[in-house]
Design a protein around this nucleic acid. Structure first.
Length: 117
RNA sequence: CGAGGCGGACGGGCGACCACUGCGGAUGCGAUUCAGUUCGUGUUCGUGGAGGAAAGUCCGAGCACCGGACGGGCAGGAGCGCCUGCUAACGGCAGGGCGGGGUGACCCGACGGAAAGUGCAACAGAAAGCAAACCGCCUGAGGCUUUUGGCUGAAGGUAAGGGCGAACGGGUGCGGUAAGAGCGCACCGCGUCGGCGGUAACGUCGGCGGCAUUGCAAACCCCGCUCGGUGCAAGGCCAAAUAGGGGAGCGUCAAGACGAGUGCCCGCGUCAGUUCCCGGGUAGGCCGCUAGAGGUCACGGGCGACCGUGAUUCGAGAUGGAUGGUCGCACAGGGUUGGAAGGCAGAGGGAUGAAGGCCUGCGGGUCGUAAACCUCGCUGGAACCUGGACAGAACUCGGCUUAUAGUCCGCCUCGCCUG
RNA sequence: CGGGGAGUGGCGCAGCUUGGUAGCGCGCUUCGUUCGGGACGAAGAGGUCCCGGGUUCAAAUCCCGGCUCCCCGA
């Protein structure tokens, strides 16, 4: 899997900031919130929020690992922070499905970004 | 061969690519220092990186703290409960006893006390805890009647039978009797006394008693034993912001006052004074943080749990939380005429018509009498599918409990067949 | 990680201490009342007492083991 420490969101404040100010897109598997980190050179950073109702510790850790691997391999724009939230349906999804979901949602966020300003 | 019991081991292997994290080495950059001295951050190399239950958090400990309390006593509260051992300890484990289940291997059991006390036992039933006559059975005053006799029946006897109930005050048999009854006897059960065996629980033999002693203590309770509380968010160190005090030592305590996290008492501490120090502490960071009642092997002791001696070995420390992601190969399992993948201009559903494209008068129309997908039919012939269960360290051990696909090993029991 | 609490008709709750009959309010059904509705009155239906064991003659209640949900401590 990917994503060393500096490419993850690790503090409560960072999560709060993204969820408060970010833009959000979601489908039946995931919900992605993204915010401009005010630093265009920085690598994209990710935080993962998998609520307990999704499943046991084993299931939640598996989802988290898969999402990290996908995020590591992806080439997302620099200077953004993301919080990825998983719905219970994600427990039964394959890596392929999760990857497609992320691509679709980011595309939607990107187009929204294009039209709004 | 089939069915079963007990104990144990594993619960994934190999490879490729891409990654994470701890530690160590090398090295780049930025600070810092007397000093490659220390810190931060990156690259690279080496090396370590989940479980038998890591789980539930039900017990026991280690460890840490408590302004004074961790000293003692009494009371209260909680837990445990056949006996003997093992263990650091335990509610755990081993062996044994007793009771229950199984043809058996074997399995299960909160298993102290109800002749200390209190309480409860609904409904049914005549009667339910100093027992009790509803039916019945027996004796039978008296009365009725044509007789041998029959009917009725005051009073009384009776717990064998019926009936009620979860339970009716020992059980079975024989004797006995008007009918009955431990009324008597035998055996069993119970109680008690003694002998013997056993460390003990208990067993066994004999005598006596003559059934007077219902059940429930996972009801209060009694008896015996154990227990201070809180938990790594313990606790310690560094230390923005903010507010003005805080800490350590020595020492007094005659009287009185005050002080506790179950209460009270004794004891104790503080309430004099004095000396010294400048820090205390939230955000944040660091330590605690992993070598331990540890694993493996050999020998010795013990039925065993376990113990002793020697050798050998080191095996995770994350913190929005690492130990993986994707794929291939072996191997294993499922599946094989009750039939897979694949194929068909076959049928039905999908269709109240997906997404997307195009058109639009913005209602919709169209590609579309479509498609994915599902079921069935025909064909086809062993491909194909699945890596599988339960489940992720969070201070650390010892247990318990609960979950668990599949594979392997050892010992044992029962049944059938063959020699 | 640690500590605490609750599961009972559709909803909200009592009953559990001291074991035997599951009850209350709202809601629901039918009927009455009214021109009609509401309110009111009268009948009535509806509960595996979260699940599995155990103790007991008998368990919602007592004991043991699970499941789900909620709350508290940074």
């Amino acid at each position: 899997m990917g994503l060393s420490k500096h490419r993850r969101l690790r503090r409560r404040e960072e999560f709060r900031k993204v969820l408060k100010d970010g833009k959000r897109a979601r489908d039946h598997l995931l919900s992605i919130t993204a915010v401009d980190s005010q630093n265009t050179d920085a690598e994209p950073r990710y935080g993962f929020a998998i609520p307990k109702r999704v499943g046991t510790a084993v299931i939640r850790n598996r989802i988290k690992r898969r999402l990290r691997a996908i995020a590591d391999r992806a080439d997302h724009p620099r200077g953004w922070d993301y919080v990825i939230y998983a719905f219970p349906a994600a427990a039964n999804a394959t890596s392929q499905e999760l990857s497609e979901s992320i691509a679709r949602l980011l595309k939607r966020l990107k187009s929204g970004n294009r039209t709004r300003p």
